[in-house]
Design a protein around this nucleic acid. Structure first.
Lengths: 106, 106
DNA sequence: TTTATATACTTACTTTATGTAACTAAGTAT
DNA sequence: ATACTTAGTTACATAAAGTAAGTATATAAA
């Protein structure tokens, strides 16, 4: 075999980012802490998968969960430093999409 | 609703890149044209899904397929200009992974 | 007291995506 | 004719995601 195998750290990053919804959840949180239902309605993800993703992301140290004991309890999700460090990647994607995805694409 | 909805162009870019294997296929092709079987063994994708992905990517103008009529026929896949324009994104991911993914991670 | 509302989930079930392994097509070579 | 190679495809099995209803906790309304 002559092809160099792909770096496992890179592969891990890819598998994180290419899990469905994950990038969009992080992107949303870039604009500040949000609640479960805010994320849900903003990106159109099901409650089931969103709760799975948020648990994953929390475990990977990308997202923090904070319970605020208000009158209906509020749960606030936000990015950790590691989470924020993904911003340049998402900005590159944003930028690329403006250059290469036609405006009318559904 | 107070949350601004996510830009559809950005969403499209994300859905492209977060399809399983797509980013790895493009990443491989960044180092030059490759054959079906090379891509397959380098990233460990099944033939079935690889052929689906390559068709998709061809249709989206990211990859080109070229038939070279050699003795066993050789089919060479390479990136278009649009495909190459994704390089900065993949480099950011590569860079991020070196900073934030622990070396021993399986 | 029952009924209703709200948030943040979870559960059961269905549909879609992916994996696996065997098979096909076209062209040599033996 | 038989076997070998590359680039796939097909049929079937498993895993991931979607959908809709249900749960837990708390507040307020009838």
């Amino acid at each position: 075999m002559k092809q160099p195998t792909i770096c496992p750290r890179f592969e891990k990053a890819i598998s994180l980012l290419s899990q469905r919804w994950t990038a969009l959840v992080i992107y949303r949180l870039l604009s500040g802490p949000q609640r479960f239902s805010e994320i849900q309605s903003a990106i159109g993800i099901s409650g089931k998968v969103l709760s799975e993703r948020l648990k994953d992301l929390e475990q990977q140290g990308i997202v923090t969960r904070k319970v605020i004991p208000e009158m209906p309890v509020v749960i606030e999700y936000s990015l950790t430093e590691k989470g924020h460090s993904l911003e340049p990647i998402l900005r590159e994607i944003e930028n690329w999409s403006q250059l290469w995805i036609p405006p009318l694409a559904e």
